[in-house]
Nucleic acid binder design. Structure first.
Length: 577
RNA sequence: GCCCUCGUAGCUCAACGGAUAGAGCAAUUCCCUUCUAAGGAAGAGGUUAGAGGUUCGAUUCCUCUCGGGGGCGCCA
């Protein structure tokens, strides 16, 4: 595929150079979804029309002639036509498609895909839950997205460092600690008792404690502020309580990361950034930061942004202040060329200011190297969600509810309970992940637990099901069939599948460069759909060995592509459903 | 008040500035004695919020209006 693109590119470039001597035109190709428009298309004539003062049709005609006249293309290209406003539609020969398919089938794994991200060191920072608070659907969205983006980047040969920066200090913790003390009193419980609870139950308890502390904050401001002070001072009074409950959160988070197949290279903590963050801000005042009535601010207004407080009047660094230290600490851990923050879009203004401040601190390390993938917010339909009241749909509940539905559908027999549970888990998570990843990252999503986590149609399980189907076919086949099918005559459905398969790497490349996950979802969905259509219409394993051999080869490549694509999305591919 | 974002089918969402704006769900019909029916086929559903502009070409870029969401000094 890459070779033929290059070949076409060369021919086009030569012709273009003749027409426009000193041009910087880059010839690109795209995938026409509709096969009536050929297998590969160029819009070069349209883009050149203005410069050459010729009509796009005229240019297209010329280029079409060039291609038709080139003898080196004849075995690979069946037809070149000009269409529409001046597109050049190119159709491959069956021979070419079959050769491509064979090549794809022969390699066991996918190669590293060449892209602008190849070889780049990229730190992806995602998840960012706060200890002593609920890990909610919004965190889950960034967790799922961060993992998928990491994998997609790795597929293009980027060196990815997975970082997670967790908030374990500050007023929210103080509120929770206050709430814990109150709840223990009210419910006549002890820490030791709760210590014996399973992780999820301890996390729930913390969630309620935070909600209570938050609710009673105004009435007990002094007491809670005092706790906050003690936290920053690492006072013995509360340290034990703090450490124990912090661990509850962290153990619970760790279970979640496990469930979602994420392994962070390093966990960073806000509490580790307090002193260093403060030091950086003070050291760079007044040149970067300014003392404003006892607080230290970054004067964002000077740069067309807005001012933000980096050190409070009480002398504690805010999240902004701590972020300064995080930038350095993360850089020490991994010399990134680029750092990607996968964080909700409500932080957009925050990042603009903070990026500017960091850039001024150390332009060499940080200028133009920080990016915010602005995640849309998740709102729940039909349920209230508020971490202040503790009334949230936890992700455990979500997964459990999905699992129940999946169990009802999953009727495969002759397997052990253990295998069954594993598969149900894989399908449920696949459904949840896909429902998140198919939506573009920036968009707010209205999450309806009844409808959003789809199990049929354009859904994770649909892709998994199709994969399981291919697996079953390949298992059934006599693998020794290796009949030569070079002269096989493709039918329409087979052709549709193969021409789609040719574009997989290109799609992954685009996803990596644009940090996009929905495009790959769409691609895989189309692939599965085309394959299922083919499957429905034609018998794959038949008496004709040539046909069987060819169709199994096709099935094999579809299978591999689905599995690889699902992997990039962080979704497991069960071998039976 | 200022800044950011979004507005596409009844609902939830797609669409590198490209061809007839696509899917799923819901609703209507068909297809399991045939390799997995979580599947396949057929039809129905649209003035892309509105008005201008740039362009050979605009859902996409620019301006304005209307509407939703978010953010703007001691939270994270």
């Amino acid at each position: 595929m890459e070779e033929i693109k290059k070949q076409l590119q060369n021919i086009f470039t030569k012709t273009i150079d003749d027409m426009i001597p000193d041009n910087h035109i880059v010839v690109t190709f795209s995938y026409p979804e509709n096969s009536l428009h050929g297998d590969i298309v160029s819009n070069i004539a349209l883009t050149m029309a203005k410069q050459t003062k010729k009509s796009s049709h005229e240019i297209a005609t010329l280029l079409v002639e060039e291609l038709r006249a080139d003898p080196s293309l004849s075995t690979n290209i069946r037809e070149v036509v000009q269409a529409g406003p001046g597109f050049i539609n190119i159709t491959f020969t069956d021979t070419f498609l079959i050769n491509c398919l064979e090549a794809m089938s022969a390699s066991i794994t996918f190669n590293i895909i060449k892209a602008s991200t190849s070889g780049e060191n990229i730190l992806v920072e995602y998840a960012h839950p706060n200890t002593h608070k609920e890990f909610h659907i919004g965190h889950m969205r960034t967790l799922i997205t961060g993992e998928a983006i990491s994998r997609i980047l790795e597929a293009t040969g980027a060196n990815v460092f997975r970082a997670n920066y967790q908030g374990d200090i500050g007023p929210h913790v103080a509120k929770a600690l206050y709430g814990i003390k109150r709840l223990l009193q009210l419910e006549k419980l002890t820490l030791e008792e709760i210590q014996t609870y399973p992780g999820i139950k301890r996390a729930k308890f913390l969630g309620r404690a935070y909600a209570l502390g938050s609710f009673e904050y105004e009435a007990n401001k002094n007491e809670i502020d005092e706790i906050n002070k003690k936290l920053y001072e690492k006072s013995k009074d509360i340290d034990t309580l703090y450490q124990i409950t912090r661990n509850w959160s962290l153990e619970y988070f760790s279970e979640i990361y496990n469930t979602f197949s994420t392994q962070f290279d390093k966990l960073f903590f806000e509490s580790e950034m307090v002193n260093y963050g403060k030091e950086i801000v003070l050291k760079n005042s007044p040149n970067i930061f300014e003392n404003d009535g006892g607080t230290y601010i970054f004067p964002g207004e000077k740069y067309g942004l807005h001012n933000r407080v980096f050190i409070t009047k009480s002398g504690y660094p805010t999240y902004e202040g701590k972020e300064m230290a995080t930038a350095y600490r993360e850089y020490e851990a991994f010399h990134f060329d680029r750092k990607i923050h996968i964080v909700a879009n409500e932080q957009q203004g925050y990042f603009q200011v903070v990026f500017k401040a960091i850039e001024l601190l150390d332009p060499l390390k940080f200028k133009d190297k920080q990016f915010h993938v602005s995640m849309g917010m998740v709102t729940l339909i039909g349920r209230k969600m508020s971490s202040r009241t503790g009334d949230v749909l936890s992700i455990d509940n979500l997964i459990e509810e999905v699992k129940e539905k999946v169990s009802e559908l999953f009727t495969a027999g002759k397997i052990s309970d253990k295998v069954r549970r594993t598969i149900v888990q894989q399908i449920s998570l696949g459904a949840v992940k896909y429902s998140i990843l198919k939506v573009s990252t920036g968009k707010n999503v209205a999450f309806d637990i009844e409808k959003s986590v789809a199990l049929e149609g354009n859904s994770g399980p649909y892709l998994q099901y199709t994969y399981a189907r291919t697996y079953s076919l390949l298992e059934k086949s006599d693998k020794n069939i290796t009949i030569n099918f070079k002269n096989y005559k493709l039918n329409h459905e087979e052709r549709e599948v193969i021409r789609h398969l040719l574009w997989y790497e290109e799609i992954v490349r685009i996803c990596a460069e644009e940090l996009n996950t929905s495009l790959i979802c769409e691609y895989l969905y189309q692939l599965a759909k085309l394959f299922n259509h083919f499957y429905q219409k034609h018998q794959i394993i038949s008496k004709d060995d040539e046909v069987t051999s060819f169709r199994l080869c096709l099935t094999n490549v579809v299978s591999k592509t689905l599995k690889n694509g699902l992997y990039l999305l962080g979704i497991d591919a069960p071998i039976q459903m």
